[in-house]
């Protein structure tokens, strides 16, 4: 579904993506892991066209998406920071985003799922961080697109909302959607991921199933498996 070839991006002297190759198949939950600054968000933003890569190719369903915009109507994206125009109410913001896409939405169902009914008339600047993240989730999932990209979806969510989110992700996966997630919460990854990619210094260091990374490292949980890959990498770097 998504094919990324030799993707490079630097911000000044800081090389964030260094010739990344990646293929994401249609259907399933694909998690992008990596330490801070490893290029996760830059990769996601490149797919969405918010960051212009220095070189390389990104195609979705065999069509190049670089410098295009219309393809975004088939992608739902959850940004990392949920900050909205201060003077709009929740209902107005939802209507605005609905207006921009001209597509049928299921906002009502999601408002109910995340318990946002009582906040519909509230101004966005009066909401707490977690409630804003719920609004953010409604805006993301309401269009029912084939491809869903979630950048740190768990941040600020209370346990109930987190449970609802996991349920939602499972349901969407069962409907055949492709869901790409970045997160630092390993337990969350273990619960939802089917395939993972581990980014380090702008390239992929592991790509495959969750089971595969356990077998490769001989560990039984993801946190330790990742720690082992990192340690191996540092040892190699020191040898060089």
């Amino acid at each position: 579904m998504i094919r990324i070839e030799d993707l490079k991006k630097s911000f000044g002297k800081n090389c964030v993506l260094n010739g990344l190759d990646l293929e994401i198949e249609k259907g399933g939950v694909f998690v992008i892991l990596g330490p801070n600054g490893s290029g996760k968000t830059t990769l996601i933003k490149s797919i969405l066209g918010m960051v212009n890569p220095d070189s390389g190719q990104i195609s979705i369903n065999n069509r190049s998406v670089l410098r295009q915009w219309a393809y975004r109507s088939d992608i739902d994206y959850l940004p990392q920071i949920a900050n909205f125009p201060a003077n709009l109410s929740v209902a107005e913001l939802i209507r605005l985003v609905e207006d921009l896409r001209h597509k049928p939405t299921r906002s009502k169902e999601l408002i109910h799922l995340f318990g946002l009914q009582e906040y519909l008339g509230s101004k966005l600047h009066t909401l707490s961080g977690g409630t804003r993240q719920k609004v953010n989730l409604v805006l993301t999932f309401m269009f029912n697109s084939e491809l869903v990209i979630l950048d740190e979806p768990t941040s600020g969510l209370d346990p109930v909302a987190l449970l609802r989110l996991k349920e939602l992700i499972r349901k969407e996966r069962a409907n055949g959607k492709t869901i790409i997630i970045t997160t630092h919460i390993m337990s969350f990854v273990e619960e939802v991921a089917e395939r993972i990619v581990f980014l380090l210094d702008g390239t992929s260091h592991y790509e495959g199933s969750l089971q595969g990374i356990y077998e490769l490292t001989g560990q039984s949980n993801l946190e330790e498996a990742i720690a082992q890959i990192l340690q191996q990498q540092y040892a190699q770097d020191n040898l060089v």
Binding site: L48, G49, M50, W69, A70, Y71, R72, S73, I75, Y77, P79, I81, A82, N83, F84, P85, A86, V97, L100, R101, L139
Partner: peptide
């Protein structure tokens, strides 16, 4: 500067920059 995050939300929508 105040609307930069909202601008990012719009940038992810099918709209020209």
């Amino acid at each position: 500067y105040n609307s930069i995050e909202f601008t990012e939300l719009l940038l992810a929508q099918p709209i020209k920059r």
